[in-house]
Design a protein around this nucleic acid. Structure first.
Lengths: 226, 226
DNA sequence: CAGTGGTCTAGACCACTTG
DNA sequence: AAGTGGTCTAGACCACTGA
């Protein structure tokens, strides 16, 4: 149950550099290793991850430095980002059990369904406090759901574990806001938006859930930093 | 000049799993270490990177397995992707030396310019063979350019080194195709597109170049896998 | 029970930069 | 010459899985 030492060191370094101005050097790896009675390899691992995340950068033969805040990697879906925010809440618009989506071929294709396969389809409005942010159409294969208990909906719609362990692909599609969603998002018709098609797969590559999101560009900036 | 051992092992493992079906186990870390007369930590490093890239996945206490091809991480800009493709070529549309873009505030803001600062502005059409893919508006701060030699344009517009070492943020903006670009991209007016604003910064956080791309969605799918 | 990945140590040598 | 990050070794113990 104990936290690995390298993660403790990582957290401490993160605190240490918090608020420091960019390009400030941090102590050398050997020095940090002494401070924590750790081996240099353990310290390196902690620093390695902070470099990956864009908190630090290294200069060979010179040292390790605090990176600019804007260099921090933010490559994740708005899906996950919103789900973790406190103000976010959801309003379920539709909930179709056993909804057969044969014919809507790009969805079934993504989920690699077999003929006649059944899906759960949920359409929900995502809000930041009272402000509508986007519409999400969620498709989950019936066989991915436990038979018994569908009552705890929020539990199913918690995708972060799958995103972290598995993988997610996102396709960005420009389009006009669908007329039936314009009102819900407080938008005028004929407004160009970005639709994002998310496909979340498990470690073994089996697609798990497909989410199609329609974003109000005025309320949500879609951006990544890598 | 010699290649590190862990990279050699990484390449070998990559070759080894190439074409193997997903979820096939690879030899254990200790076994691979024996094979290459390497320590286990060296092998771990090689495997670590392949896991990061989505070529392998680990199951704790069980083993390491070949990942599905679709799990491979593809989080990079179309900017870079196109630049590395063989069929890609460019047609320069405008080339303004010392172009003052004061007033177009989001660009100067991104490049953190000082009042009166000068920029090089290049507008080019990106083609895949004969097919127009997108328009790129490129802004480079004058002070980032060597005074003497501007002749080798392609050298300047080779951003991969900066993307790899530094960082890049991308903002996705839905909009109608600008009328002046519709013809160049063989598109009808009033077509919704995605504009991507790329800001490439150096390791120390100094912004280096700003690229605004207008994509023809029919010719270029914008997608990432993470 | 043997085998796996996850963590950790205490060294080592290298190429390179900087004072 | 001293210090840095990059690589590498040959061990070790742990918790856990699966036969």
């Amino acid at each position: 149950m104990e936290k690995p030492k390298y993660l403790m060191i990582k957290d401490n370094i993160k605190d240490f550099i918090d608020g420091q101005s960019p390009n400030t050097p941090i102590p050398s790896e050997r020095e940090i290793a002494n401070t924590y009675n750790a081996s240099r390899m353990t310290v390196r691992r902690a620093i390695e991850e902070l470099v990956e995340d864009g908190y630090l950068y290294r200069e060979k033969n010179v040292g390790t430095f605090v990176a600019d805040v804007k260099m921090r990697r933010k490559v994740h879906s708005a899906l996950l980002e919103d789900a973790l925010k406190e103000n976010t809440n959801y309003k379920i618009l539709y909930f179709n059990m056993y909804f057969d989506i044969k014919g809507e071929n790009d969805i079934t294709e993504n989920l690699e369904s077999e003929p006649g396969e059944l899906f759960l389809r949920i359409v929900r409005l995502v809000l930041d406090k009272e402000t509508p942010i986007c519409i999400e159409e969620i498709y989950i294969s019936r066989k991915e759901l436990p038979n018994d208990d569908i009552s705890d909906l929020n539990h199913f719609l918690n995708f972060d574990k799958y995103i972290e362990e598995g993988s997610m692909s996102q396709v960005f599609v420009p389009m006009m806001i669908p007329t039936q969603y314009a009102k819900l998002l407080n938008m005028k018709i004929n407004t160009p938006i970005i639709r994002i098609d998310h496909l979340i797969s498990k470690k073994n590559g089996i697609p798990f859930v497909f989410v199609r999101s329609y974003y109000n560009p005025d309320k949500k900036k879609i951006a990544i930093t890598m």
